[in-house]
């Protein structure tokens, strides 16, 4: 069982699978999958991959095409060539510019907005001695 966690299964670009794919380890898909993917480890969806089905993984990196929902225990990463048509749910999310994404997203890593930085000396608008300072208006 420990060996399975380190082994990565691979579906190359010329392979087409119809049905559900299940694995406890990691998997890389570059081919076509018409069905669901249940992966206990991390999944990598290559640029040439085309998946029509849902994905349940620990973490996934998508560069190809997916028509279906994604549920990840940890992280979803969408590369710039990714095309995702479906809903996504994960703890963490990273999306590169260029992604095509239509669907709903449920990702909230912290559950709270980022804290404001500690107050510092104010920037350009305030303070004296700056040559290009316009003015401080008080009435």
């Amino acid at each position: 069982m420990d060996q399975n966690e380190n082994v990565q299964s691979s579906i190359s670009s010329d392979v087409e699978i119809t049905g559900t794919v299940k694995t406890n380890g990691n998997i890389r898909i570059d081919g076509k999958l018409n069905g669901d993917l249940n992966c206990g480890g991390d999944a990598t969806i290559g640029k040439s991959a085309n998946i029509k089905g849902n994905i349940n993984v620990n973490a996934v990196s998508i560069a190809g095409s997916l028509n279906g929902n994604i549920i990840a225990k940890d992280r979803i990463e969408m590369k710039s060539s990714a095309r995702v048509n479906g809903d996504i749910k994960a703890k963490r999310l990273a999306v590169e510019d260029g992604v095509t994404f239509v669907g709903k997203s449920e990702v909230n890593p912290s559950g709270a907005p980022a804290a404001a930085p500690a107050p510092e000396a104010q920037g350009d608008g305030k303070g004296e001695g700056k040559e290009d300072k316009g003015g401080v208006f008080k009435r």
Binding site: L93, K104, S110
Partner: peptide, 13 residues
Amino acid sequence: LMVEDGGGLKVKA
């Protein structure tokens, strides 16, 4: 759209 790692997204996109 660009989301940095650690950014949250609860939207209909």
